[in-house]
């Protein structure tokens, strides 16, 4: 947001919300990365850190929401300011949900850490890399007000959906062949599902960025 002498205090407040969202997104992205890392390396200490880290993200969510509501009440934003602030409120909620899901992955990682893996993890780290990229890129699109970049995030979601289906199919085969793998397979399915949901949240963030910049909603328009 450009500095304008007529409304510098107002711009400072809008920028503060933006900065906090960027900081929160960094924490959230790291949570997803560490949660998957804790799974692959069977590092339950790292998984616990992810779960504990959720408190800071929850507090940030409340703080950003509070500042945004105050700005709505006191400044009556219009046009692009209004679209910015409503988008920020939604991104805030989505980031918080992503952090919860990283926590879910970490919980499952702790349970899996005491047991031998069914097979080497290949698709899950791949999914994690794509989802992290989606979170980071959707936030970059938000900061730079870049709808073209946001579109790139939207295109990645289909890859994640396919990988998730692949993981499911593979795990079902393992379960059918050896029922002793069922408990572990269900945990891994949960992890895959969480990553798929995280990608959905990132996709929604990207779609809201398109709305914020252009004023046009592109949500719920993709062919199923």
């Amino acid at each position: 947001m450009d500095k304008n002498p007529i409304r510098s205090h107002y711009d400072d407040k809008l920028n503060h919300i933006k900065e906090q969202l960027v900081y929160m997104a960094g924490l959230v992205e790291k949570s997803v990365e560490d949660a998957v890392k804790s799974l692959i390396t069977s590092d339950s200490d790292l998984a616990k850190k992810v779960i504990e880290g959720d408190d800071e993200i929850d507090l940030l969510e409340l703080k950003i929401e509070d500042e945004s509501i105050k700005l709505l009440a006191l400044r009556q934003p219009a046009a692009r300011d209004l679209r910015f602030i409503t988008t920020a409120i939604k991104i805030n909620a989505h980031l918080e949900r992503i952090a919860d899901m990283a926590g879910n992955i970490a919980e499952r990682a702790i349970k899996l850490s005491t047991q031998p893996p069914i097979k080497p993890y290949i698709d899950i780290p791949h999914m994690a890399r794509i989802t992290q990229w989606m979170i980071k890129t959707s936030l970059d699109a938000f900061i730079n007000e870049d709808p073209a970049l946001a579109e790139k995030v939207r295109n990645e979601d289909q890859k994640i959906d396919k990988l998730n289906e692949q993981v499911f199919r593979e795990l079902i085969t393992f379960m059918m062949e050896d029922p002793k793998t069922i408990t572990r397979a269900i945990y891994i399915m949960g992890i895959s599902k969480n990553l798929e949901r995280i990608a959905d949240h990132a996709e929604t963030i990207a779609e809201m960025v398109v709305y914020m910049v252009t004023g046009k909603s592109v949500r719920h328009q993709r062919e199923k």
């Binding site: 304008n4 007529i6 409304r7 107002y10 934003p77 219009a78 046009a79 692009r80 300011d81 209004l82 679209r83 004023g215 046009k216």
Partner: peptide, 20 residues
Amino acid sequence: KIFTNPSNKKTEDYITGRFG
């Protein structure tokens, strides 16, 4: 339309208090 997504930048700048 004017208050959510005006078509003209001058309108946008005016209603968001960037000039006036």
